[in-house]
Design a protein around this nucleic acid. Structure first.
Lengths: 229, 229
DNA sequence: GGAGTCGGAGAACGGTTGTTTACTCGGTGG
DNA sequence: CCACCGAGTAAACAACCGTTCTCCGACTCC
């Protein structure tokens, strides 16, 4: 992962700062684990340090309070998922079945949707704690964290709108409408991720959730296709 | 204070139970007020009793713990909004512009959508604390409350699906697809309510949020209209 | 009208919280 | 090589937490 050069490490390596980042990592991981069964506003400072194996006072070397830690968690969670989500959305966006040559071309759109939902599913499986944290604190009790999340999601929305604008089907769409559709996609993605998380790793309910998510996306894409009528 | 029964106050009322319900009311109201700036899992028992003007020990006469109180709040919030939401959804459902006689009939659908969003807006203005509570605890840290909310919302969804099935445009729709669409409506309603709440009572941003919500609904209705193609 | 019920008050308990202080001690830079 | 810096420790602080106990007094039922 990190670039800890062993031999000719020079300049700015810092064994010092490396250790600092390690405990910071421990604090973030411990907090994320604890947040699977409670929300941020009830997360105790001592609770985190205890789980991380450090002293309560050490916490202040990294964060002002638990809310500050929460904001850091938002950046980490949505930052790491940034490229992944971008890929997913780019795939979803192009569902217009391309030029309407002949019929039966609709499978292309459905395949894109299937791939997108599958990607969300894989994402939830790989980073369940991050997804849970975002879904929970999106409307949570800590103002700063809420603001951070909505800011990041708005960023995603704008990015999706840009991607949407690039495809030929978007001809004639206003910027406002593109943002509207992009926001709908993003919100639906968060909702789907949360639903998948709540369904658990079992096959039965989870498969049904994915099925419904696909149909919802298909309906939205259908509406998108006929928007300019 | 109050003397006994005034004249022919009889049978089952009970001055006793009336007072009990009064303090229960005080506890619920105090909790709801406190929950505007934090989440349920961080809500303290003593905090609630202090705000309600009663002793901590009195709390146990009404609820086992704060999670139990949260479930009661869910029933109250979604129970009271039940009829209102039902009305709103019944209005939204019929957006198919009726029989497709000639063109230009689409305004009917848009008017329904406008009315529905307006109703949500009014609902948020009248019960902001309830709406905030539901939106926040829907993915919150208390399992029992989460289950209660999702159960109530699933009930709403089924009800909306029934209403949808009654309109002529639903011919040929499977029950699963009706539930899918109903869930999409319900989720979108909660999202819109939360967004309106976050926008605050000011005219500028709030009006924009309502505008986007209307467009989203219009797009969904469009997809619904072309679902069976 | 008297016995009984019960919602609420009051006080006490052990435990945990966030925060601050003084201190250690190993990596860092001149 | 040595002085310094700073991440982390240990201890102490008052405040608050959830829970339990005993007790009071007003309502209820017969």
């Amino acid at each position: 992962m990190s670039h800890t050069a062993e031999t000719t490490q020079v300049r700015a390596p810092g064994v010092r700062q490396a250790q600092k980042l390690r405990t910071r990592r421990a604090l973030l991981d411990a907090a994320l684990a604890l947040l699977e069964e409670q929300s941020l506003s009830s997360l105790g400072l001592r609770e985190v340090t205890r789980a991380a194996g450090v002293t309560p006072a050490a916490f202040y070397r990294h964060f002002r309070d638990t809310a500050d830690l929460g904001v850091a968690l938002v950046d980490e969670a949505l930052g790491s998922l940034h490229t992944t989500i971008r890929t997913a959305l780019a795939a979803t966006v192009r569902d217009g079945t391309g030029p309407e040559d002949g019929g039966g071309g609709e499978d292309g759109g459905d395949e894109r949707i299937d791939a997108a939902v599958e990607l969300i599913d894989a994402l939830v499986r790989e980073y369940p704690a991050h997804v849970r944290f975002i879904a929970r604190e999106q409307h949570g009790g800590v103002t700063a964290v809420r603001a951070a999340i909505s800011g990041q999601l708005a960023l995603f929305g704008a990015e999706v709108a840009d991607t949407l604008a690039a495809v030929p089907e978007a001809a004639g769409w206003s910027r406002a409408d593109l943002l509207m559709l992009a926001g709908l996609y993003v919100d639906h993605m968060v909702m789907t991720a949360s639903a998948l998380l709540a369904a658990g790793p079992e096959g039965g309910t989870r498969a049904e959730v994915a099925r419904v998510a696909r149909r919802r996306m298909r309906l939205i894409s259908l509406g998108r296709r006929h928007w300019l009528d």
